[in-house]
C-alpha cells in the first residue's frame, strides 16, 4: 500500500483561487446589467473584448515566462482584471482603447512584476490611468443615462464606424464639476441640471452604483471580501462629503450623490478590495480604504478630474506595505502589537 505522506493539515477547504475570482466576476453582473440598461451594449462589448485581450496577453506572457498556461489561466485573475477595466471604460470606447488598456494592465502591471500575487499596483487601475492620461477625450465620452444605444450602434462605436461626438453626454460628476468651474453657482442653476437629480443621486448612475453595491454585499456574504475596505472606502468618501455639504450645500455635492456617482461603488467593492495590492491586516485595510475614499472626495471636490477612484487606489497601493507594517494585529499572548519593520 502506497501511502501519501504530507504535513498537516491533511484536510483543506474545497476551494481555490479560481473559484474565488469567479465569485468576483459573478458579483459584477448586476452592475453590468444596469450599465447595459442605462447606456446600451457598449459595456458588455467592452468586457468581452477586454477578457479576450486579457487571456491572450496573459497566455503569451505565461508562455514567455515558461509557466503552465492552463494552470495559471484557471485562476481567473486576468479575467477579473479585464472585467473590472471593461466596466470602468466608457461604453463608447473603441476597440483599440480597450486593447491598449487591458494589454498594458496584464503585461506591464501584472506579468512583468511576476504575475498574480506579485503586482504592487491594481492592474486594472494602472490600465485605466494609462488610458485616462493618454486619451483623455475618449475616456470621458459617456452617454446620457436612460437612453441606451442599440447593439448595432454600440458595435459601430466599438469598431469606430460611428462617431462618438453626436451621442456623448456628460456624467453627473462631470456636470457638477463643470457647473462649479464656470463660476459662481446658485441653487437654481444646479437644479436646472436634470442629470444631477435622480431618485436619490445622479440620474441613472444611482442605479449603476446600487447594482455594484448589491454585488459587493454578495461578495461580503460569500466571505470573498471583508467589510473593512468597502466600509472604509465609503466612510472616507461619505463623511467628508457630509461635513462639507452641511457647511456649504451649494459648493459641495451631498453625500448620497458622492456615494452613488461615478465609480464609487465599483471602487469600494471591486477595485479597492483587490487583495494583492491592498493592505492586508484588518485595521490596515480600514485605514487604506478610508484614505482612498478621502482622496476621492478631495480630488472630486478640488482636483482636476471629475472622478478619482483610479488615482486614489494607485496612490494607496503605494502606501499599503507601509500601512501593513504599522497595523499588525495584537497576537494572542502579547500585550501589544508589533510596529514597523522588524
Amino acid at each position: 500500500m502506497s501511502l501519501i505522506t504530507s504535513t498537516s493539515p491533511h484536510a483543506t477547504v474545497k476551494n481555490n483561487t479560481g473559484a474565488f475570482m469567479r465569485q468576483v466576476i459573478y458579483a459584477t453582473l448586476p452592475g453590468l446589467a444596469v450599465l447595459t440598461w442605462q447606456f446600451g451594449w457598449g459595456s458588455v462589448i467592452n468586457v468581452l473584448w477586454a477578457v479576450i485581450v486579457a487571456l491572450v496577453s496573459e497566455a503569451l506572457f505565461l508562455k514567455a515566462r515558461g509557466r503552465n498556461i492552463a494552470f495559471y489561466l484557471k485562476d481567473y485573475s486576468a479575467v477579473v482584471t479585464a472585467v473590472l477595466l471593461g466596466l470602468a471604460l466608457p461604453p463608447t470606447a473603441p476597440w483599440w482603447l480597450t486593447l491598449i488598456g487591458v494589454s498594458f494592465a496584464i503585461i506591464v502591471a501584472k506579468q512583468l512584476y511576476g504575475g498574480l500575487g506579485m503586482n504592487p499596483f491594481n492592474p486594472a487601475m494602472v490600465g485605466y490611468v494609462l488610458l485616462l492620461i493618454s486619451f483623455p477625450v475618449a475616456m470621458t465620452q459617456w452617454l446620457s443615462p436612460g437612453e441606451p444605444l442599440s447593439f448595432v450602434q454600440s458595435w459601430q462605436l466599438f469598431t469606430g464606424q460611428l462617431p462618438v461626438d453626436g451621442l456623448s453626454g456628460a456624467t453627473p460628476l462631470d456636470t457638477f464639476r463643470t457647473a462649479h468651474s464656470a463660476g459662481a453657482v446658485s441653487e437654481s442653476e444646479l437644479a436646472s441640471h436634470g442629470i444631477l437629480h435622480g431618485q436619490f443621486a445622479g440620474l441613472g448612475w444611482e442605479w449603476v452604483n446600487l447594482a455594484f453595491l448589491l454585488g459587493g454585499l454578495y461578495l461580503i456574504s460569500r466571505k470573498i471580501i471583508t467589510w473593512h475596505i468597502p466600509l472604509g472606502f465609503l466612510a472616507g468618501l461619505g463623511l467628508p462629503a457630509l461635513l462639507a455639504w452641511l457647511i456649504d450645500p451649494v459648493r459641495f455635492a451631498d453625500p448620497l450623490f458622492q456615494l452613488f456617482s461615478g465609480g464609487a461603488m465599483l471602487g469600494a467593492f471591486f477595485i479597492a478590495t483587490d487583495p494583492v495590492s491592498a493592505a492586508t491586516s484588518r485595521m490596515g485595510r480600514l485605514i487604506y480604504a478610508l484614505l482612498i475614499g478621502l482622496l476621492i472626495w478631495v480630488i472630486r471636490s478640488f482636483g482636476g478630474y471629475p472622478d478619482a477612484v483610479a488615482f486614489s487606489v494607485l496612490l494607496l497601493n503605494l502606501s499599503a506595505p507601509f500601512i501593513d507594517y504599522y497595523t499588525q494585529p495584537r497576537t494572542y499572548g502579547h500585550k501589544s502589537s508589533n510596529r514597523g519593520v522588524s
Partner: peptide, 16 residues
C-alpha cells in the same frame, strides 16, 4: 497557487 493575500488565513488564525 500564488498567494493573493486574500487574508482568509488571517481571518481564521486563532493566534491572531
Amino acid at each position: 497557487q500564488p498567494c493573493i493575500r486574500c487574508g482568509s488565513c488571517a481571518e481564521v488564525c486563532p493566534a491572531n
